[in-house]
Write a protein that binds this DNA or RNA. Sequence first.
DNA 1: CTGAAAGCGCTTACAG
DNA 2: CTGAAAGCGCTTACAG
Lengths: 350, 350
Amino acid sequence: MRPPERQEAEEERQPATMSQIARRLKVSESTVSRALAGSPLVKAETREKVEALARELGFSVNLNAQRLKRRRSQTIEVVIPVEEYGRQHMSDPFFLDMIGALADALTDAGYDMLLSKRTPWAVDAEGRPRPNPLLSGRADGVIIIGQGRDQSQLRAFAAQHRQVVVWGDPEVAGDYLLVGVDNRAGGRTATEHLLSRSRRRLAFLGDPKEPEISQRCEGYKDALRAAGMPVEADLIVPARFDAVYALETITAFLGKADPIDGIVAATDVIAMTAITALQQAGLSVPGDVAVTGYDDIHSARSASPPLTTITQRIAEGGQALVATLLGAIEGGPARSRVIEPELIVRVSSG
Amino acid sequence: MRPPERQEAEEERQPATMSQIARRLKVSESTVSRALAGSPLVKAETREKVEALARELGFSVNLNAQRLKRRRSQTIEVVIPVEEYGRQHMSDPFFLDMIGALADALTDAGYDMLLSKRTPWAVDAEGRPRPNPLLSGRADGVIIIGQGRDQSQLRAFAAQHRQVVVWGDPEVAGDYLLVGVDNRAGGRTATEHLLSRSRRRLAFLGDPKEPEISQRCEGYKDALRAAGMPVEADLIVPARFDAVYALETITAFLGKADPIDGIVAATDVIAMTAITALQQAGLSVPGDVAVTGYDDIHSARSASPPLTTITQRIAEGGQALVATLLGAIEGGPARSRVIEPELIVRVSSG
DNA sequence: CTGAAAGCGCTTACAG
DNA sequence: CTGAAAGCGCTTACAG
């Protein structure tokens, strides 16, 4: 048998606790707790002694105890339900921009960010639901990116909990807090822009099964109708989010369809993929075909050619999601928020 | 004054607890706890009664209490220290691919994933350190993506804690667990590939201040020297990670330098940006200039032209990071792991 | 300004 | 197979 000292050294080192600090300083745990929390109740001299020893011992407050007692996790769960998105494998840079914006906003507000690819109502392999993030104290609120194809579960979940905010389309929304852009207006704006550049035969690339894409597609149809032009079903191509798959679809479409001179793409990634397909087919952008994207992801401006797009103001959207959610958590009158889409004209549209 | 019922309805609804279930079923809390944990100790009939009532009440176990008691958070903190990366604003899709891979691996292993842009040793606005994720029970382990320019703090932190794994370069690594590719070999492979395609004047694009990039650049030099060719300092261009900034740098370089016929880019994003700059300058890829990237991000294969690149096997890397970390947490003999880089030949290199 | 006490909601060794 | 008891590490109303 080894000597106990050796054994202890091999064990997990136990972190220091408030009670240890209290004992060594001959004060109560209450005082240590108050001192470390910066309570004005404790004498400056006492606080300094406590802080000094805490630093010396490398003390970190036990967050699980603190959260249990305070009934607050100071954590927000951000859900990117990729299963819902036609298995796009989360590859769209839109998500990265959104994650970055949310991380910044949450950090500034003093919250930790939990990232999940599963919805709170998802069941695990054995068909059991995961612990509800809100009821289990895992998170104080949930941000869900995207409404998904089937909204019934989202609606049911949001009906149970006030601390839920969704990024999605205002028109499609149910009775839950939502931040998002008017996708129909954005789709219409993009289409009108191409029409104003004298493009006459416009395809829409994007899968209308997704609610947000569907709205963008409605905007495309609105603009065509307003211009007195026909809406041709053949020109609506259900390209997937994922560039690798979209490329096949678009290439096939270009081979089959009568020549087009404009493309309204449902996302920037689809737009860039379409440009690749066009160039491979020997067509120039914007010479032969003008292209608009949607999202204004970070790389849109350094694309080749730089992409005309509808900005979703992702940074602003992330801030609004956090502000709305924190409002709901504080119990205040949290309000949904519609962000206006805006056309950013670059080179790809001529 | 309102009647108390109304008041209660306005209050936050308190989640059900094990003690409530126990009381209603006239069993002990211990039994409820065991039943819900699926302990073989409890009689099937009892377990079913408990499970039924738990379901009826919408019971979710209080994770803060559970974690406090078990001294396990079942959570891993993933750190993407963007401040370190020359302020690249986390815009490189490499991060999204890595985040996705880590999320999958952690979910499969039953862990939650906390995402942070701040290192564990970062201080807040007031200069106070955040609670240490490991000592505070916030996380059972930390995964840090990238070694950063200044490794001293990383080394100090890792020296204090076994439950830390870093994604980075094996050559540069200190005494900590690491998963990463041999960047020098990768840089050399890419360069040799262009030389084998009869390219003779090759530029390297990427900022060697970053340790991983520096190694890729060493590989570039190795290959040139091995081919008996000169290493020209002017052909090493410290392009930033961020495409928007990189574009300026690269365009300026193309305007100044003697003609080149090949580019070894330090990342896929830099490669795609270089292609944009080349095309804007009226040069064709790969006709006039052959280009290789690095990372094999998701969009490399649908780029225009599809990008020849060095794959980092990001999905495999994410799994290895998680496997290594969980090994360290279990206390087993966790081992660092080197992933072999591999050349993926597509169109951009001719 | 400080302390004693209660309690947040679990888990688990111990006893039966 | 079940229960009583202790305790994880905090916070905070209450009393002084």
